[in-house]
């Protein structure tokens, strides 16, 4: 009897989101810390899976300071994490961890996997770049071509269409490697941190980067050249999200400017803060690749979601959170 009620309740919850859960091809994971008040970061921090509206469950034993996450597509129990303790690796879906590096690699910010070699993992560090060729067991720095100073790396992204090709956003700009990080060349010069780099899921040549002071940048040639998108924000931009269905949809997060969206591939932009908390301190945005739901993580508050690309918002869960990354994991159809 209880099971029946639970099933009905679950169905109601799923229907109320406006789409059927059975059709989803991705699971949403969130790397977040939780502040339950007075600046006390408690140990429910870590990785959360979104099960439904206002229902996020933790999948990791209490692990604070997780910034980013990548799954091995061959085996989802294999996960690689960028954390305050440097790179972490698990081969049993978070039941046990290995800190892959010592104190020389700390406070990792971003992590990604090579598109053609799933044993190769790229890691962005506050003082450069490290790469593992053995599924996170060991890490070495590969920084030839990066500047001696100014290597603060906030974002690293491998090209999903070419093995060994990877871009990293650092303090001094955007750097490209086509040999798995062995050599780097500068493709965009800056003096303030590049905060995010993303590749379009629909057009592999199209990339967008966000920055602290240079606005949002777009590349139409696979990251070789970049031009400014003239986003009308006055402050630092935190990240960018592509829509996997509509190629003209972009969304950008800014702590001081909130959510910005474009419906025309970046030619014009709209602030989409109506319905969000007054100061709308947005840490991260994401667009669901299945449903086109737009997510916005309000710092130390809820994740909000929007079914109409930011025109209206509702609380989606994970109150008191600071979200560092949304990760959509392709999964077998349920």
């Amino acid at each position: 009897m209880i099971k029946k009620y639970l099933l009905l309740a679950a169905l109601f919850a799923i229907q109320s989101e406006g789409f059927a859960y059975e059709t989803l091809k991705h699971e949403l994971y969130v790397c977040a810390d939780m502040d339950l008040g007075n600046g006390k970061w408690v140990t429910v921090n870590g990785i959360f899976r979104r099960d439904s509206l206002n229902n996020y469950s933790t999948i990791v034993r209490d692990t604070p300071g997780i910034s980013d996450l990548v799954f091995d597509p061959r085996n989802h129990a294999y996960m690689y994490v960028a954390s305050i303790n440097g790179p972490l690796t698990t081969y049993d879906r978070c039941h046990s961890w290995r800190m892959g590096a010592d104190w020389r690699m700390t406070e990792a910010k971003s992590i990604d996997m090579d598109s053609g070699n799933f044993d190769r993992i790229y890691l962005a560090l506050p003082d450069g770049v490290a790469i593992s060729e053995d599924k996170g067991k060991s890490w070495t720095r590969r920084e030839a071509g990066l500047p001696l100073r100014g290597k603060y790396a906030q974002a690293i992204k491998s090209d999903r269409t070419q093995t060994g090709r990877v871009l990293v956003g650092i303090e001094k700009g955007i750097y490209l490697s086509v040999d798995s990080g062995t050599n780097w060349i500068c493709v965009f010069e800056s003096n303030a941190t590049v905060t995010d780099i993303q590749q379009s899921p629909l057009n592999s040549k199209e990339w967008i980067a966000t920055t602290k002071k240079d606005g949002a940048l777009k590349s139409n040639d696979g990251g070789l050249t970049w031009h400014n998108l003239h986003v009308p924000a006055k402050n630092a931009l935190y990240n960018v999200a592509f829509d996997s269905i509509n190629p003209s949809h972009y969304a950008i997060a800014s702590l001081l400017d909130g959510v910005l969206t474009s419906d025309d591939a970046g030619n014009t932009w709209n602030f989409r803060n109506s319905g969000l908390p007054k100061t709308h301190p947005i840490f991260r945005v994401a667009i669901d690749p299945d449903t086109q739901v737009l997510y916005a993580a309000v710092n130390r508050e809820y994740i909000y979601s929007s079914n109409d690309f930011g025109r209206t918002w509702r609380k989606d869960g994970l109150n008191h959170s600071t979200v560092y990354h949304f990760v959509f994991l392709p999964v077998t159809k349920k």
Binding site: D35, N38, G39, E107, K109, P126, Y152, Q154, A192, T193, T195, K212, N235, A236, Y238, L255, L256, P281, F283, N299
Partner: peptide, 20 residues
């Protein structure tokens, strides 16, 4: 703050005041 801490821009001045 960004010079010495690995934080995103703008967010730390308010946060540190909650953290002692």
């Amino acid at each position: 703050l960004e010079t010495c801490f690995t934080v995103l821009p703008d967010e730390m001045p308010q946060r540190v005041m909650l953290e002692g």
